[in-house]
């Protein structure tokens, strides 16, 4: 099967000389959801920013057969890869919910009526139709996240990348979001520290360490290998008291 995303020997250095990615190889196949784990600063976010050309490093990144670079294919790549950022406030910059969700389709060159129809359909998918006329700052954190996802869905992407989607949400909000993401048919990459979210959604996990993928496997395998949950903490706590 042809992968949707194919990354080979990706390397990236920030201007200050910090090596953020040090030879990453990665494939994403249709229908799968991959959880990306790793410590803060291990290169996870830098990695996903390469997948729709917001950063370009050495090596190759191919999305749906198209190379990701500054060329003409960039707009098409950005249509295929929807990136949902951690801070919804940064993602919702238009004055109203409907205009924000229509921002992507309009950039793709759609007519205003078509863009609006797509925006309304996307709001329906995330259950936010009622809020179309609201200003983003009147929404709760969970609602903002849904609208941000609608803004991406309106571009009809084949791949969704979500950077810490459950941050800032209360447990019911997290559950509702996880259910929503589970319903969406796109292949997904979840950058997250939220193991519950990864356990429900991800069919596979990769673990970033010092700009490389140090391991991959099922979520449980990766979590166990790197002690990426609180089991160790519980053990030491019971030892002390």
């Amino acid at each position: 099967m042809q992968p949707l995303i194919e990354v080979r020997d990706l390397r990236f250095q920030y201007d200050d000389g910090t090596t953020a990615l040090d030879g990453v190889d990665f494939d994403l196949f249709p229908g799968e959801t991959v959880a990306v784990f790793g410590a803060n600063g291990s290169g996870k976010t830098t990695f996903v920013l390469h997948l729709n050309g917001l950063l370009t490093g050495e090596g190759s990144v191919t999305v749906c057969g198209m190379p990701v670079n500054k060329g003409e294919s960039l707009t098409r790549v950005r249509q295929k890869v929807g990136l949902v950022f951690q801070d919804s406030d940064n993602q919702l910059f238009m004055p109203s919910v409907l205009e924000d969700v229509a921002f992507g389709p309009l950039n793709l060159g759609l007519e205003r009526n078509d863009a609006e129809a797509r925006a309304r359909a996307a709001l329906d998918v995330v259950g936010m139709t009622h809020a179309w006329g609201k200003a983003p700052y009147h929404l709760s954190a969970g609602e903002k996240k849904r609208v941000a996802i609608a803004g991406i869905l309106a571009m009809r992407p084949e791949i969704l990348i979500l950077d810490e989607p459950t941050t800032f949400l209360d447990p019911p909000g997290q559950n509702a979001l996880i259910e929503l993401l589970d319903r969406l048919p796109q292949a997904k990459i979840l950058v997250t520290h939220d193991l519950d979210c990864a356990r429900v959604l991800a069919s596979r996990a990769v673990f970033f360490e010092k700009g490389r993928i140090a391991a991959e496997g099922s979520v449980e395998e990766v979590v166990a290998r790197f002690q990426w949950d609180r089991t160790a903490l519980k053990r030491s706590a019971s030892h002390h008291f």
Partner: peptide, 10 residues
């Protein structure tokens, strides 16, 4: 962050 989010949506 806003600029990145704008670019990401074309």
């Amino acid at each position: 962050g806003i600029h990145q989010a704008m670019l990401a949506r074309g």
